[in-house]
Structures are given as C-alpha cells and as structure tokens.
C-alpha cells in the first residue's frame, strides 16, 4: 500500500502515450503530462468544489457573527476570533474536551487490546476460521444507525437485555442512557464494539507479515507463550500497532452518529464530545448558532489533522525503511 503515499517517479524516461492527437508530437513528455492531468481534472475540480469550498465556508462561518437572517442574506459582520473566544469560554468546553479524550482513549485501548487478542487467536488457521473472521466484520460494516439503535434498546433501563442479564446476577438495574454517570460509558461500549473489527483485520494482516521462522527460532530458544508474545511478537508488530492506533484515533475523534443517536450528548451534556457539541450548536437547537458551531468544528479539524499528519509521517517512515 505504500505506493499510494509515495511520490511517483519522474516521467522523463518513459515512452509517451499517444493521446492528445498529433499536435504535440514534438514534445512528447509534455503531451503525456497533459493527458495525465486531463484524467486528473475531474478529481481536482471535485476536490476544489466539494472539499475546499465547504471547508472555506466553514472557516468563514466561524469568523463572522451569523444570525438566521444574515445566514440567508450573507451579510454577517466579520468578528474575527470572537466565536472561538466564546467557545473557549463556554461552560461546555471543559467537559466536552474531557469527554472527547475519555471516549477516544478508552475506545482505542479496548478496541486495540481485544482486536490484538482476536488477531492472535485467528492467526493459526483452524476449521471455519476464515468464515468466523469474516463474520467479525459485521459490526464494522453495519450502518451506524442500525448498531446505535440496537444498542439503545439493549441498554434500555426497563426492558433492555443488558439489565436483564445483570438482574439475573442480582445486580440493580443501571440507567445506561439516562443517567449522567453512565451515558458516556454506554456510548463508549457501543463504539468499542464497532471498532474491534477494524483493529482485528489490520493487526491480523500485520501478524501475518511476521516471518514464522522468527517464531520458530524463539520457540527453539525456549521462549514460550506470554514471553514469546511480549519479547518477540509485540515488538515486531509495533509499526503496525502505531499505524492502527493513530488511524483509530483520527476515526474516533470524529465519531458523531453513535453518540447522537444513543444519547444526543446527554443527559445534561454528560456524553457531549466536540463532534456532538458542534452539531448541537449548528443544528440541534431551534435557534442555530452556526458561528460557534463552526468554530468547534474547526477545533476538531485541527485535532484530527494533527494526529492525521503524525500518522502519515509514521507510515512514510515505515515504507521507506
């Protein structure tokens, strides 16, 4: 996959394709470049119109004071970083930051650990292992509204199956989605469930890439079980683990659907992250606050891009080595 991120080789010493008609026969390499960029034109236009422009509008939203009227008419006054100041000073900021951190880190820790354990388990082929591995992908491929609403019903305080099982062991019913003490944990559990397959698949392919001879050598040296895992497998898997965790981090920071569908960030903000906060400001109220909403969104972008760039750096370093 490293080809995707590496710059292609210079085009100088390569026979030029015959497109572009005969007009440019004199300068063949350049006609090759024309053809190459002609094929890229749709995606470039697409990126400019459907990525760059919305992002630009988003930045613009965050720098102006919008009301519903000026949103339609487009004459909102420029207010600089007032929206950002408002957001940073908001009582929601601290909790939202904390919830985002807890949600992301706890999700990652469990997704990675469970994913790695399962990848180790599936590494040695056994009967049905391919089929079962494929079935493990289901949570990751289900539409989020499907998984979120299923978990909502399972977590229902009165009739949910989770409380029914807990009750069978004599535990008191837990108000998973309606108590401020539990809502963040409930959405985190659902998110862990959704993210395990991704970790399993990536780590499994990472494990497969490790030369079996290394394990045999370690086994001959008397390293067994846990020791072999910690001293041999885990260090060898570190590059893949780093990439998995960083990519998972970028994905988890932007999780919105699950939280919004299950709790809407509530009750009383107890499961509000940056993503749901931004949505609530922009779309969740009768009177939309687009400016602050966009400001929160841009803070989220900065976070995602920071870790995204770290991810790309790590991955490039690995493909070069």
């Amino acid at each position: 996959m490293n080809r995707v991120t590496q710059a292609p080789a210079p085009a100088a010493d390569r026979p030029a394709p015959a497109a572009g008609g005969g007009r440019r026969a004199a300068s063949r390499p350049r006609s090759g470049q024309w053809a190459a960029w002609a094929f890229l034109a749709p995606v470039v236009v697409y990126l400019l119109v459907f990525y760059a422009y919305p992002l630009y509008r988003n930045v613009e939203l965050s720098l102006r004071h919008y009301t519903v009227r000026s949103f339609v008419q487009g004459d909102a006054p420029f207010t600089g970083f007032a929206n950002y100041a408002e957001v940073l000073g908001d009582a929601t900021f601290g909790p939202a930051l904390w919830h985002t951190a807890v949600f992301t880190l706890v999700s990652l820790a469990f997704q990675f650990t469970i994913g790695l354990a399962l990848a180790m388990f599936f590494l040695k082929n056994f009967r049905l292992s391919a089929v079962l591995r494929a079935l493990f992908l289901v949570p990751w491929l289900l539409p989020l509204i499907v998984s979120s609403s299923t978990w909502s019903w399972m977590f229902n305080s009165d009739s949910g199956v989770v409380n029914a099982v807990l009750g069978a062991f004599g535990a008191e019913p837990v108000h998973w989605l309606t108590s401020p003490d539990w809502s963040l944990w409930s959405v985190t559990i659902a998110n862990i469930w959704i993210g395990v397959p991704f970790n399993l698949v990536v780590l499994y392919s990472g494990l497969q890439a490790i030369d079996p001879a290394i394990h045999e050598a370690a086994a001959l040296d008397g390293a067994a079980g846990w020791q072999r895992f910690w001293k041999v497998t885990f260090p060898l898997l570190r590059p893949v683990s780093a990439v998995t965790l960083l990519l998972g981090l970028v994905y988890t920071l932007k999780v919105f659907d699950i939280i919004w569908i299950m709790t809407r960030g509530g009750p009383s903000g107890s499961s509000t992250t940056f993503a749901t906060w931004s949505y609530r400001l922009g779309f969740g109220n009768l009177l939309p606050a687009f400016g602050p909403g966009a400001a929160v969104g841009n803070l989220l972008i900065v976070m995602a891009l920071f870790f995204g760039l770290v991810y790309i750096r790590v991955q490039r370093k690995q493909s070069l080595s």
Partner: peptide
Amino acid sequence: IPGIIMAMG
C-alpha cells in the same frame, strides 16, 4: 476531515 464539519460547510 470529520463529516460533521463538511456538513456545516
């Protein structure tokens, strides 16, 4: 880029 940000733009 998070979808919610694209959505606002």
